[in-house]
């Protein structure tokens, strides 16, 4: 890695973006440095997915700036961007007949030459990515035969095959069982330990607080709070965004914040 220590992998400064006539992002500022996992929180419609699309140049900015690896986003071509930044979408499409290995190999696309022929190294990186994401035993399976959790791992493997320095994930744990959720975040922590910067959109605040170094809470396109988990997941801040029927407890062992509903009436039987 040749990253300069003080230059963040991703530096987003006061960006605005609109979908049609509706402004979806308003003055959003956010940094992701090498080796950290940053959680992006917020209610549905807060602008989290739009944020990921804006910082990967899929939609235009109306104001502000995005710098990736110290270069302005507008000056990076798609291929160069894809060699350093990988995205795991929420519900990515792919042909059900395509094999897992073929899909993960597509992660090598930005690294290949004009004729698109994969080298032995491309296959080696692909195998390693599948091993890391825990799907090497699925290599020859068609995508259409996978469970939801397996499918998530396969798309994370494809992102890893890009050999990214910055990894962006949109709700990678949605619809996963609790064990699979922990495994996903353990993987993100391990990647960060290797120097990758991780930005992950997540709804589960307890999970986010347990695994992320910093959290950024978006509401209505604005940053409401930003900082270490204990400073963001507080009763006052969470209620201001999600309403009064949530509260925050402290984990008995680690003091991590735990978000739970307020039980007004007696609990269900």
């Amino acid at each position: 890695m040749t990253t300069l220590i003080d230059v963040p992998l991703l530096r987003v400064t006061a960006i605005r973006a609109a979908l049609g006539s509706r402004e979806v992002l308003r003055d959003v500022t956010l940094d992701v440095a090498s080796g950290e996992v940053v959680g992006l929180l917020g209610p549905n419609g807060a602008g989290k997915s739009t944020f990921l699309r804006a910082v990967t140049a899929l939609i235009p900015l109306t104001a502000g700036s995005v710098e990736v690896f110290g270069a302005t986003l507008a000056n990076l071509d798609r291929r160069a961007l894809a060699r350093g930044v990988a995205v795991v979408q929420q519900l990515p499409e792919a042909p059900p007949e395509m094999s897992v290995e073929d899909l993960v190999l597509l992660g090598r696309t930005p690294h290949l030459g004009l004729l698109g022929r994969e080298s032995a190294r491309d296959f080696a990186v692909t195998s390693e990515a599948m091993r890391r994401a825990g799907c090497e035993d699925l290599a020859s399976r068609p995508l259409g035969t996978l469970s939801g959790g397996q499918r998530r791992r396969v798309f994370i493997a494809r992102a890893l095959a890009q050999e990214p320095r910055l990894l962006l994930l949109d709700e990678p744990t949605a619809n996963l069982d609790v064990q699979a959720q922990y495994e996903t975040f353990e993987l993100l922590r391990a990647l960060a330990a290797d120097g990758v910067g991780v930005l992950v959109v997540v709804h589960d605040m307890t999970l986010a607080a347990a695994y992320c170094d910093r959290l950024v809470l978006l509401a209505d396109g604005r940053v409401v709070a930003s900082g270490p988990p204990a400073a963001v997941v507080t009763v006052d801040i969470i209620r201001s965004v999600y309403g009064n029927n949530v509260t925050v407890l402290a984990h008995p062992g680690t003091a991590f914040p735990i978000v739970v509903p307020v039980m007004v009436e007696e609990p269900h039987d």
Binding site: R79, V87, Q89, M98
Partner: peptide, 11 residues
């Protein structure tokens, strides 16, 4: 064969 956003994100 992936959706166009994925293709763009793959460069």
């Amino acid at each position: 064969q992936l959706d166009e956003e994925q293709a763009a994100q793959l460069g």
